[in-house]
Amino acid sequence: MPTRPRSSSSARISSAIVVAATLVAVPPAALAQSGEVNVYTYREAKLVAPLFEAFTKDTGIKVNTISASSGLEQRIATEGANSPADVLLTVDIGRLKEAIDLGVAQPIKSDVLDKVVPAQYRDPNGLWYAASARARVVYASKARVAQNEITYEELADPKWKGRVCIRSGQNIYNNALFAAAVAHYGEAKAEEWLKGLKANLAQKPSGGDREVARDIAAGKCDIGVGNTYYWALMSEREPDKKAWAEATKVILPTFQGHGTHMNVSGVILAKNAPNKANGLKLIEWLVGEQAQKIYADMNFEYPIRSGVKPHAVIAAYGELAADPLPIATIADNKKKAATLVDKVGFDN
C-alpha cells in the first residue's frame, strides 16, 4: 500500500527503510510531550489522516507520524531507548510478528481492548491488537467464470491450468495466506497445494492486487487472488481503474471446513514509548465506534468492533464466514510458508 521519497545517504543506513510522507515530523529529541503521541505507520498517510485528525479533535492530543513501506520495526530497534516511537501501526501480521521478535513491543494491559478485540485478532500476551481486518479473496472474470463459490484448495485444481494470476508468493499478504494453509494442512500438504497453484498460473507472479484485476480484465487470466479493499478502492475511488473492477467480481473463498482467510492492520505499544499513556489512549480509541466507522467507510476494511457494519461495497461481496484460525498462529507459520514458496519455485 504505502510508498514515498527518500534521501540518498540516510536510505543507505537501512536499505529496508523508505521514509514515506509525514503528516507532522516526529521531533528529533525523544522527549515526552504531554499533549502528543508519535506514531510509526505502514499505513498510507492519506488513509490514516482522517483517523488521527478525529483522534486529535476528540482528545486534544497531537499525532506526529512517520510513514514508511518497510523497516519501521528495525528502525525502532536501532533507535533503542532513545526512540520517539510510541505506537507502531502495521498493515500485516508479519510486521507485528517481526516487531515482537525484535523486542520493540511492550505488553498492553487494557480492559477496553480485551472487551472489543476478539481473541483471534490479538496477541495472547497482549503484545499487539488488531485495529481492522481484511480478507484474502478471489477476483474472477464476470464474463468467463460462472461460479460464485470457491475454496482455496480449488485454486490448485487442474481445471484452472493457465488461468490464475497472482502477485509474488513472498508478498506479505500471500505469505500470510500460505502460512494459514501450513497451519491447516501441515507442511507436506501445503507444499503440494502450492505446487498445484503454481502449475495453474497464467504468467509469472508479478505486480500487485490491482494488477491482478487488470490482467483478468485484459483476458490474460480468469481468476486471481487479492485483498477485499483493493477491489473496493478501484470501484469507488480510482476512476482510472474502475473498468478493472467492473470486469471482475469478488468471491469469498474458504478453507474446507474452516472459513475465509483474514489478515489484520494491527498496533503495538513501543517498548520505550516516551508518551505511553497517550499511546495507549490512541490504541484504545482506534477500536472505538468512531474510528471503526472510519476504517469501514474510508478504508473499506472489516471493522474489529462488533456492531459496526462494513461499507456497503464490502458487504455486497456476501456474508463473511471468517476463518477462526488465530492470527498469531498464522504468524508462527510465516517462515515455513516462505521456505515452501522458494522450495517449489513459486515465483520462478
Rank of each mutant, 00 (worst) to 15 (best):
S67I: 10
K334R: 15
E284C: 07
I100T: 11
E238V: 10
C221M: 10
V287L: 05
S265R: 02
T90Y: 00
E44S: 10
S69I: 09
K271G: 08
P326V: 08
Y42S: 05
A176K: 02
A49H: 04
A338T: 09
K161M: 10
Q292G: 11
R163F: 08
A99V: 03
D101L: 09
V19H: 11
G80Q: 03
T22K: 13
E238M: 09
N263E: 15
Y229S: 10
A277K: 07
L201T: 14
I61K: 00
D342C: 06
A85P: 07
V344N: 00
G169S: 08
L127T: 04
L51C: 02
G224K: 03
A315S: 15
A232L: 11
A146F: 03
A179E: 04
V37S: 04
E301C: 12
H261Y: 06
V116A: 01
P253T: 09
K335I: 13
A99E: 00
V267T: 02
N348F: 04
A337P: 06
E211F: 11
P5K: 12
G186H: 12
N299E: 12
K281T: 09
E98V: 12
V164G: 07
F52V: 01
E98L: 12
E246A: 14
L155H: 00
T260H: 03
T151L: 10
A131W: 00
P27G: 14
T339V: 13
N38S: 05
P253M: 06
P28M: 13
E98H: 08
G169L: 02
G208T: 12
N175L: 14
E301I: 06
L282D: 01
A20S: 15
P303H: 01
E236N: 11
E246C: 10
A20Y: 07
D332C: 04
V138S: 06
D111R: 02
T151E: 06
V250A: 08
L197P: 11
I61A: 01
Q170D: 15
E191Y: 03
V24S: 14
I13T: 14
N64W: 05
G186L: 12
V225S: 11
L127V: 05
V91C: 11
Q147N: 13
Q290W: 00
G266E: 02
S70R: 08
A176F: 03
D123M: 05
Y129E: 03
A291P: 04
R210C: 07
E192G: 10
D342A: 13
H261K: 07
E284N: 04
W193H: 13
D332V: 03
T339N: 14
G126R: 01
V63W: 00
E289T: 04
G307A: 06
L280S: 05
A16V: 12
K343F: 04
T260C: 14
A146K: 12
Y185Q: 15
K204C: 08
E44L: 05
K62P: 09
G219E: 06
W231V: 10
Q33W: 07
V48R: 02
K241N: 15
T254Q: 11
A218Q: 15
G162S: 05
K276A: 14
